[in-house]
Simulated assay, not measured.
Amino acid sequence: MTTVTESLPAVSRTAVGVAAMRAYESNRPDRLFDDPYAAAFFEAGRSVLPPIGRDSAQAGLGELMYPQIVIRTRFFDDYLLQAGCAQVVLLAAGLDARAFRLAWPPGTRLFEIDLPEVLAFKDDVLATQDASPSCERVVVRADLREDWATALRASGFDPAVPTAWLIEGLLIYLSRKDAEGLLTTVGELSAPGSRVSFEHGTGAPDGLVSRAHATEDGESVTALWRGGLGSTAPEWLAAHGWQPSTVTRAEVAAGYGRPSDDNATADGFVTAVL
Rank of each mutant, 00 (worst) to 15 (best):
L166V: 05
Y173M: 01
D124Q: 14
R74V: 04
R72G: 00
D178S: 07
R195G: 01
A142T: 10
M1A: 11
P9F: 08
L189C: 05
L208F: 10
A214K: 10
T232G: 10
E136S: 13
F111A: 02
R141N: 03
L81G: 02
T265A: 14
R13F: 09
S132I: 12
P9I: 01
T5G: 09
V196K: 04
S7W: 13
T128V: 05
S47Y: 07
R153G: 09
E188M: 12
S210D: 10
L95I: 01
W225E: 00
L274P: 03
P192L: 08
V70L: 04
S194P: 08
L91T: 00
S26Y: 11
A40I: 05
G230L: 05
D78V: 05
I167W: 00
P205E: 15
P9K: 04
G255P: 13
R22I: 04
L189D: 04
A272D: 04
M1Q: 08
A164K: 03
P162F: 09
M21C: 15
D261I: 09
F76S: 06
G201N: 07
E188W: 01
F41G: 03
V247K: 06
A103C: 13
A253T: 10
E146Y: 01
W236E: 07
P67D: 03
V88R: 00
L166R: 01
G53V: 06
D147T: 14
A233N: 05
I71H: 03
I52Y: 06
R109W: 02
G268T: 12
G207I: 08
L171D: 00
D262Y: 05
Q68S: 11
T202K: 04
E63A: 15
M21H: 11
P105Q: 14
A92Q: 02
G84K: 13
I52T: 14
V252Y: 02
S231K: 12
A83F: 06
Q87T: 05
V125E: 11
T185D: 03
A154C: 12
S260D: 10
F157A: 06
G53H: 14
G203D: 08
D96Y: 00
V161C: 07
M65S: 09
A179H: 01
V139T: 15
F269T: 01
P51T: 15
F111R: 05
R74N: 07
G62D: 05
F121E: 13
E112Y: 02
L32C: 08
V70Y: 08
R28I: 11
G227D: 09
A239R: 10
T232Y: 08
A223K: 11
T14S: 15
P106E: 15
L166H: 03
A19Q: 10
G228Y: 01
A93T: 00
D262V: 13
L224T: 04
P36N: 04
E63N: 07
W104N: 11
A131P: 13
G230A: 07
V18H: 02
V196T: 09
T163Q: 08
P29R: 07
D206H: 12
A99I: 07
F198G: 00
L61M: 15
R153V: 08
D143I: 08
H213I: 03
A154G: 10
F33N: 03
R145C: 04
S7A: 15
A239K: 12
G228P: 02
V70F: 08
V88D: 01
F198S: 00
W148L: 06
R109I: 11
A164V: 03
A99T: 14
